[in-house]
Write a protein that binds this DNA or RNA. Sequence first.
DNA 1: ACCATAACCTATTAATCCTATATGCTAAAT
DNA 2: ATTTAGCATATAGGATTAATAGGTTATGGT
Lengths: 151, 151
Amino acid sequence: MLSMRAKYALKALIYLAKVRDQGPVLIGDIAASQKLPRKFLEQILLELKNLRVLKSRQGKSGGYLLAKEPAEIEMGQIVRVFNGPLALVPCVSVTAFEKCAECLDFDHCGVRRVMKKVRDITAEILDGTTLEAMVNIEASESDEASMMYFI
Amino acid sequence: MLSMRAKYALKALIYLAKVRDQGPVLIGDIAASQKLPRKFLEQILLELKNLRVLKSRQGKSGGYLLAKEPAEIEMGQIVRVFNGPLALVPCVSVTAFEKCAECLDFDHCGVRRVMKKVRDITAEILDGTTLEAMVNIEASESDEASMMYFI
DNA sequence: ACCATAACCTATTAATCCTATATGCTAAAT
DNA sequence: ATTTAGCATATAGGATTAATAGGTTATGGT
């Protein structure tokens, strides 16, 4: 399962993309409108800022805004940072590769081969879906229509 | 990431499928040959027995063996039992569906729609890969060849 | 210059989960 | 009867997660 941090990060980003022409948005506004715990969200937004995905202004009329075009922000990046590697086993991870301690035959391991398939397809979907696509998906009516936004 | 329990369960099952014509296999033999922690594996095998995936004999010349044909045992079932739902968000899970507490618009939620796609493809792969296929995958030389065993 | 505001940053908590081991019990074969 | 090997449960230690608290720093308005 995705961590709350990862899910909240995605929700906050989608919201910020939607209201992107309205200047800086308060943490409190994001939290209230998306029903996310305010202080917890604060940490997440800070991390997104350090990632250079968001930028911020302090003090009066401050708040957060996107630091990039929505089309340049990939779901895969956010999930990896906030939830860890996409891979289900370390030996199939691109970003955190590690051989299993109990590994007997790396090349022929069936678990590894199947999990690699799962990871590759997951990466294809998540890296191929940008924040821009997410906004479009939310605007569309049917799940079928939303499929068009995938690579 | 997959839990150790799930990974060990899969490895033990593949091993048992390979030596299936040799009668009951000792926990200690499975543990030693697959380099898995013996007592931890014991719990896992017991759970597999209660699932009716394995059967066992106690006492002298006892051990574990498959309770079904390898072609009838799906990877998806094992992963779900030992690792939890395949879904990355509860609102997209078939076996443990739950609406997110912070959900504002279920039908249009972009996170949900994308994660549903990921879940569906993951389920297609894991439910479409049987223990029999896993044994064949381990016997094959190239990763390309192993793709043939997927649905 | 001052003050209100809002983001920044760090520490801490409670709860849960994960991996693994320990211990005693029960069933079966010889 | 004895030995073997699985059955069952308890428990420990560690790691991770979700969330809150509290003080600090920057900034715009007056």
